[in-house]
Design a protein around this nucleic acid. Sequence first.
RNA 1: CGGGGCGUGGCGCAGUCUGGUAGCGCACUCGGCUGGGGGCCGAGCGGUCGCUGGUUCAAAUCCAGUCGCCCCGACCA
Length: 562
Amino acid sequence: MSRLSQTFLPTLKDPPADAESLSHQLIVRAGLARQLAAGSWTYLPAGWRVHRRIERIIREEMDGIGAQEVSMPVLQPAEIWKQTGRYEIDELFKLNDRKGSEMVLAMTAEEALTWHVAREVRSYRDLPLLLYQLQTKERDERRPRAGLLRTREFVMKDAYSFDRDPAGLERTYALNIEAYDRIFDRCGLDWHRVASDVGMMGGTGADEYMAPCAAGENEIALAPGYAANVEVASAEAQAVELPPGLEAPERAETPGQTTVEAVSASLGVAPGALIKALPVIVENRGMVLVLVRGDHRLNEIKLRNHLGADFRQARLEEIAESLGPAGFIGPVGVSVPVLMDAAIAGESFITGSNEPDAHLRGVRPGRDFEFEQVDVRAVEAGDPALGGGGAIEIVPAIEIGNIFKLGRRYSEPLGATFLDENGAEQPIVMGSYGIGPARILAASVEQRADERGIVWPRSLAPWQLHLVSLSKGDGDEQKAADRIYEELLSAGVEVLYDDRDAGTGQKLTDAELLGCPLRIVVGRRTLAEGEVEAQLRGSGEDLRLPADDAAAEAIRVLEGIR
RNA sequence: CGGGGCGUGGCGCAGUCUGGUAGCGCACUCGGCUGGGGGCCGAGCGGUCGCUGGUUCAAAUCCAGUCGCCCCGACCA
């Protein structure tokens, strides 16, 4: 029963003042959801229909790879989170019950599920195991933003795999990739699976599923055949013109010139002909001098991953003590280890001299200083992709799913072990696999909407068909529209029937705002010719259908829409 | 967590600087007209101006505190 006159679908002519992103504006305007507090959202009937369609696709594909659905509590004892060391996470909601016991609101469920598996699984015969749930997650976000894109409470599909060894994990991981690829395809998204930083989750590998859109919080580097989170992306460097080589480095006076721009301007060379020297203090290791090309930026995540340790910028006094005056630092003659980015290729660079107000020209890596070559620069738009795939493009994207190879990160602290064929106790090898249905919803709106409103793919649309009766009272149009509605219902079509006593403009603009794939309009003019009008929301294509056979014809048209 | 902005009928806003007892548009209700792109006319309902305290004869307006919301950045297991 979906008569609009009886449906709670509060549409807005104007977006609320606090909505910035496109999906935030349209989700509110189209009556899909309303905000209760910062990062807390209520789904209204139409929005929840979309959410449930996404959930259904996820369930079908997860079940299809042999995953089994469970449901775990959101309210969990703090103890297991302390055991894995995740109790310290700032984003974890913490509370006490009336007895004073420490509790948390779960942000994922590795601890809870691993705790159960530790008690129930004893033998290699019980493995592998792939369990999942669609359950509310809570996160004490520092800054919720952009409508449904970053909220404090949201439903997540979270799956966890339990294998006996890394090879088993690889197989399970590959199965999840297959399921994820199908899920995002079926949701009609433009998406990329990108290599990602494993971050503090630890583990041995991770991929993220990214949907490019303007409101995205992440950036991904794309080229034909290449996609990576910029946090870990690599590329060839764009060529730079270097000055002629010299027999030995030569001092160049650069009074007061402490920036790349100033030095390159004063010496008449491209910024890329300079070497930027960045002194950092590595945890438990001391100072290291990191070199990147003058026109490049250091990617701190790549450096951290290379070092395998945390680091910080050196302080001015540390630089002065070990190297020289800040702003004039270079690799020649220093006694600290030098890491040089691979993009520095050539035989004549400008570097700092480690003396005030002077640089060196004609510096040749290898001849004038020793170094370890590394890849630690941030890729830039226009860089040639590795392997000749064309130029890198950097686009904002929203993370709609991620998959992690966890290894023994959780099984060891929680004692999830099994006995192998030889009776030896082994820790279980785990993986975890997340998807945010709300982000799929928002990303779909972001990617497909036009100036009139949302454009749903058939797979996500709250209703397949939006039937509009332009008549009022009980004239012939009303009767025809009623009849078509009943026929569509009995044919099993999900139809929203706008039977309201409202103006034409309001009905048509609401239909365009809500964005169902096919709109059927029953109006006096065309009905007089024995026809009704059909419009495809995506393409804007207009069709006429015979009024007598409108339901069957509409279903046929619908089946041709993606 | 750092920076910025905003809280006045359901929504969008004016009024705040310069204190004098709250207004506009939309929406909503009723009546009438209209009936293919948010139409017209008329009559209405609806607000302790986020909250607390202070100054004052008098506070939406000035002062202090506090709560909430948005944006940028940082962070994001």
